[in-house]
Design a protein around this nucleic acid. Structure first.
Length: 837
RNA sequence: GCGGACGUGGCGGAAUGGUAGACGCAGCGGACUUAAAAUCCGCUUUCCAAUUGGAAGUGCGGGUUCAAGUCCCGCCGUCCGCACCA
């Protein structure tokens, strides 16, 4: 007996058990079917599933199920990005072990995910914090080391001088340590780096072929890699044999140079500081503050005049003061720049502050005087002036002329500089992949032999004091040198967690016990056909994963060079915020809406409605999916995640939205129960049905789920209104298949109830009949002077003249035009007529 | 500061340069009901007329075009990233 209401609690569990028992979503490596690798960015096991995860995985799930119905062998795996700082923070705050905390979270979140009915191949689940994963990562690291793609160098970190510990950028708040409150300093440490810059050119070129990536992400990566061509040249230091090498992308402005600035850690600055206490004090001052680009670029630009002068290579009479400046980065170019204030805003600000010359050397108009006025630099294109042999040239020609001259006279050469820096992977933390290196006083750093992998994290660590527990561990770091057998010390830094996420998609494809992956199986599955995740990963994670893949390809381990053929960046889930009278944030559960007003349930006091914002613990506007699944079932939650908002944009979570989704699930259930063959055909309904089949397929493939949802609503409305007919029964059976990727439990229940054989998950996607997709009539808009005045319906394919005549004969149009003679009539066949008077 | 995106009714949004507001939510009115829930029907950009109509309208200011939400220039606002959050 069919229930009048759909009972999700029973149906969800029943079908989830059935899918699991049948092994429906296990990917078969040996399948002859075309493959589809659908992947969502794996979650960090922070505690509980967040609504944002639900949205992310629902999108991938719709695609995975849709691809299955279209005859693909689908790989849709799930795992855990399980290393990271929050586990250590939990250890410090709650005294729990990071491993236990992480594994408990994974268990909770796995159970939560399973209740949503995702078509995942759980047999391939992995967690990066398990030696079975990170041991292989250590082997890959050693492979890259052997290939010369790993090296050590000094690099600055945020140092908390009170807690005596390295801080992550997010632990630096307003320049102070988050716990100690002490002003943060830069400190240099010897750290491991991966040579991503060796791949700069190919990472840049490779973007061109990623047609299924959003243009914005490609553009962001291109800018991040930051290829710039220019001139590297040397200034002689007056009265010394020293030179200062600078890089400039604007050699055309070389005659406008009025100072040279070097980084605080530039060798010249260090040399000066050795016997100039003021210079040393300034350099010390430059160490204040954190290491982030945003911090460095927004802090006050400060300079120290070293008293030294640089000799201009093209005019020996020009001598330029040499400054040490806090905004020049040692990591970029040569760590020194020429300052051309008239044509660079930062240089102009600096020159005005220190009263330096500002010479105009490019003009966009008539102004050609050598003295540049004002505080806005001219950075546009133009004609070069006040520049000797360059006068009159455009900036491009002048740049080339300067490079030619520098090359001929041997004081400079054309160079390509990259903004991209090598990837520092050392972290002074416990909860990460141990770097498999042993430091020997005699042999230097030596890789741990492969047969001693994995280097396993010790469990007995304490978090009572800040800093890296591995470093303090009484015995773990003691080891014998693999080369000479002498006493040596293990590397106590761990790898950046971005390394873990740079190859997990390979391990999902294939996970043998004795090596990272089987190249043959990787070849079958890779690249990922559709990768889905947040835009916040547009640069770093995606660039690192692209690099890691190329690095493995270069050393011959795999063939694929681009890991993600298709990329989609989805928006966040947001929610209203609520503020109590005392200014504190309130959670949605503490607030009740009555009419247009909000009040606090506890005491009835008024509540102010804040902005709709990204869900965050601090603003208490989070929504836990689990109770919502309890109340409405997985399908209503999934449907809501797909409705309304375009997936690349933010989705505001609302109570009424989930209720609307719930009502629609119930409405579908009622509709599905209305089948009963009454014979007869219904052509308009058949047309609607087949247009919906084609439209929904197109929308799902474009990941435009909100549009697919709208089309399904329209079809449901049409079926609802249609009189009983064979077409209507057919439409209901087809509708079940159309919604199956989105609301799979309901679809299975309805499918069984209709008496259909097998699982709807295995049913084929319906085919649209092309004959029913075309319309034989067109509604044509009639505009007069671009304004809509009338519409008419004509058979499709009329001639322009016929359409024009019909339009001009309409009563309303005749009335509008009056005595005037149309100057021009524009006809867009089957669409529109515009009469110009 | 630098790089990237986004901005359309009360709300989420739709719209190959060609009828702005599909579809959903909320709201209002009605039907059913002893009542409520559920369900069903209708209305719902704003302003003026009060039926037929007309005007304005896609963050702001310009521009291109027969025609601009869509293309171009300049602003404003919001969001994302900036290399140790993941």
């Amino acid at each position: 007996m069919r229930d009048s209401r759909f009972n999700p609690l029973a149906a969800d569990a029943r079908w989830q058990a059935r899918w699991e028992a049948d092994g429906c979503f296990r990917a078969n490596d040996a399948s002859p079917k075309p493959k589809a690798y659908i992947l969502e960015m794996f979650p960090y096991p922070s505690g509980r599933i967040h609504i944002g995860h639900v949205r992310n995985y629902t999108m991938g799930d719709v695609l995975a199920r849709y691809k299955r119905m279209n005859g693909h062998e689908v790989l849709h795996p799930m795992g855990w990005d399980a290393f990271g700082m929050p586990a250590e923070n939990a250890a410090m705050e709650k005294g729990v072990h990071p491993g236990g905390w992480t594994r408990d979270n994974i268990a909770t979140m796995r159970a939560q995910l399973k209740r949503l009915g995702f078509a995942l191949d759980w047999s391939r689940e992995l967690a990066t914090c398990e030696p079975a994963y990170y041991g292989h990562e250590q082997a890959l690291f050693l492979d890259l080391l052997d290939a010369g793609l790993v090296y050590r160098k000094e690099s600055a970190v945020n140092w908390d001088p009170v807690d005596m510990t390295v801080l992550a950028n997010e632990q630096v708040i307003d320049g102070k340590g988050w716990r100690s409150g002490a002003p943060v300093e830069k400190r240099k440490l010897s750290q491991w780096f991966l040579r991503i810059t060796d791949f700069a050119e190919e990472l840049l070129d490779g973007l061109g072929a990623l047609d299924d990536w959003p243009d914005k992400v490609r553009l962001m990566q291109e800018n991040w890699i930051g290829k710039s061509e220019g001139l590297t040249f040397r200034f002689a230091v007056a009265g010394s044999a020293e030179t200062v090498e600078v890089f400039s992308t604007r050699p055309d402005t070389i005659f406008g140079a009025s100072f040279v600035a070097v980084a605080a850690d530039h060798p010249l600055a260090q040399q000066i500081a050795a016997d100039d206490a003021d210079a040393a004090a300034f350099i010390e001052r430059c160490k204040a503050g954190g290491t982030t680009a945003a911090e460095i670029e927004t802090q006050e630009k400060l300079g120290f005049d070293t008293g030294l002068k640089a000799v201009h290579p093209l005019d020996a009479n020009l001598s330029l003061p040499i400054y040490i400046a806090n905004f020049v980065l040692m990591d970029y170019g040569s760590g020194a720049v020429m300052g051309v204030p008239a044509h660079d805003q930062r240089d102009l600000d600096f020159a005005r502050k220190y009263a330096l010359d500002v010479r105009r050397v490019v003009t966009g108009g008539d102004a050609a005087g050598a003295v540049f006025e004002g505080d806005v630099a001219f950075t546009g294109e133009g004609r070069v002036v006040n520049s000797g042999f360059l006068d009159g040239m455009d900036v491009v020609a002048a740049g080339k002329a300067v490079i030619a001259r520098a090359t001929a006279e041997n004081w400079g050469e054309a160079t390509t500089t990259w903004r991209l820096r090598d990837w520092g992977v050392s972290r002074q933390r416990y909860w990460g992949t141990p770097i498999p290196i042993i430091h020997c006083a005699a042999c230097g750093p030596v890789g741990v032999p492969r047969d001693q992998l994995p280097v396993v994290l010790p469990e007995d660590v304490d978090f009572k004091t800040p800093g890296n527990p591995l470093d303090r561990h009484p015995s773990w770091s003691r080891a014998a040198c693999p080369r000479c057998g002498g006493d040596a010390r293990r590397e106590t830094d761990t790898l950046d967690t971005f390394v873990d996420s740079s190859w997990y998609f390979l391990r999902f494809a294939s996970q043998p016990a004795d090596r990272p992956f089987d190249p043959e199986i990787v070849r079958q599955w890779l690249p990922v056909d559709q990768y889905i995740g947040g835009v916040e990963h547009a640069i770093l994670h995606l660039l690192y994963a692209r690099f890691w893949t190329r690095a493995l390809a270069r050393i011959g381990m795999i063939e694929v060079t681009e890991p993600f053929a298709g990329l989609f960046t989805q928006g966040m889930v947001t929610h209203e915020t609520y503020k109590a009278g005392d200014g504190s944030w309130l959670s949605p559960g503490e607030v009740r809406k009555t009419g247009a007003d909000y009040m606090r349930i506890e005491d009835g006091s008024p509540v102010a409605l804040g902005r709709v914002e990204k869900m965050s613990k601090s603003k208490k506007n989070t929504v836990d999916p689990e109770p919502i699944v309890d109340q409405y079932g997985a399908d209503a939650v999934r449907w809501f995640m797909l409705s309304d908002s375009p997936p690349e944009r933010d989705l505001p979570w609302t109570e009424s939205g989930i209720e609307g989704a719930w009502r629609f699930v119930q409405r579908l259930w009622r509709l599905f129960g209305e089948r009963g063959d009454n014979g007869g055909a219904d052509k308009p309904l058949a047309q609607k049905l087949h247009r919906t089949i084609a439209g929904v397929a197109e929308d799902i493939e474009a990941l435009a789920f909100n549009k697919a949802v709208a089309k399904i609503y329209e079809l449901a409305n049409a079926i609802d209104k249609a009189a009983p007919s064979a077409t209507r029964d057919d439409a209901l059976e087809t509708l079940a298949r159309l919604v199956a990727p989105m609301v799979p439990h309901l679809a299975e229940e309805a499918w069984a109830d209709m008496g259909m054989a097998g699982l709807i998950a295995d049913a084929p996607w319906p085919e649209a009949d092309p004959a029913l997709l075309v319309d034989d009539e067109a509604t044509i808009a009639i505009q007069v002077m671009g304004k809509l005045r009338d519409t008419m319906t004509l058979p499709k394919g009329q001639s322009k003249d016929a359409i024009e005549a019909a339009a001009l004969a309409r009563d309303k149009i005749v009335a509008f035009i009056g005595d005037a003679t149309p100057k021009k009539v524009i006809v867009v066949p089957d669409r529109l007529v515009n009469i110009v008077l």
